[in-house]
Design a binder for these strands. Structure first.
Lengths: 140, 140
DNA sequence: GCTTGACTTAGAGCGCACTCCAACTGTTAA
DNA sequence: TTAACAGTTGGAGTGCGCTCTAAGTCAAGC
């Protein structure tokens, strides 16, 4: 982090990639498609991200990981731009996403159970694997 | 389900799609790429899935939903084909997938928390939304 | 002055997992 | 017998979300 003051921190695209977990490619891509507004530039036209940008990017990344589509994120951004009147709509969008996320998590729980059952089946049919996992002697 | 006996059930591709949650396209696709072995055919070369096939397809679907790639599923199928010697390898593959799945589920939990916080923030800034959700009168 | 390296842009390319299409076959019902 | 319908095949097309390339700019260090 190469910032001159303690109060205002500005980050290069590389630093921002590290701070947010998004690749530099993705950072430019998100800006291009309008997910991120007007990133400040230095004298050489290089991007300078501030704390707020980092926060927003982190939020976007979380939404992506949790399965929100780029399309939906775009809609959310649009709503954000249209001021306080859209707060309710934004909230509803997030509530819908939450519902999707929760049901997806439920589904994953089912998958995990299926997976555990299958693993248990294999382990039962081949006890040596269990021993290995316990750190015991491996035999063939 | 148009089966003639109670003991041996055979299903058309359409029925199988309904029973497994996979599309007919996907069923053919999975067969083509070798995820599903030798599905029986009737006199007109139409696929006839049996209970075992259904079970296997359901398992595949679960693995896909939980994030296993087609590539990895192919590897698993290959191992299955190479007999009992591969039981350990198969088990390890599933254990690795389980680890991935669990860490993904953790990540989703974090996302959910972030999402809930954001929703709570919006709800706090616009109390009418809360009332609406509680089934109370909607006002503008 | 020259190279290195981190950045810029517009736009092309890619991998994944389907999804669909065209052309065909066979069964059933009117 | 003709139309509708459910299936078949090989192969093309699609949508998503990046990811990379080419060609260029600028600043710093040797």
């Amino acid at each position: 982090m190469t910032n001159s003051t303690n109060t205002i921190s500005r980050f290069s695209i590389q630093e921002t990639a590290e701070l947010t977990g998004l690749s530099v490619h993705t950072l430019r891509y998100y800006e291009k498609i309008g997910l991120v507004p007007h990133i400040a530039r230095d004298a050489n036209k290089r991007r300078l991200y501030d704390e707020q940008d980092i926060g927003w990017l982190r939020f976007l990344r979380r939404m992506r990981i949790s399965g929100m589509s780029i399309q939906t994120m775009k809609r959310f951004v649009q709503l954000t731009r249209s001021g306080d009147d859209s707060i309710q709509a934004r909230c509803e969008l997030l509530q819908e996403h939450r519902a999707n996320l929760i049901s997806h998590m439920e589904e994953l729980k089912t998958c995990l159970t299926v997976l555990e059952d299958k693993i248990a089946f294999y382990e039962a049919s081949f006890p040596l694997i269990r021993d290995q996992q316990d750190g015991k002697v491996k035999e063939k």
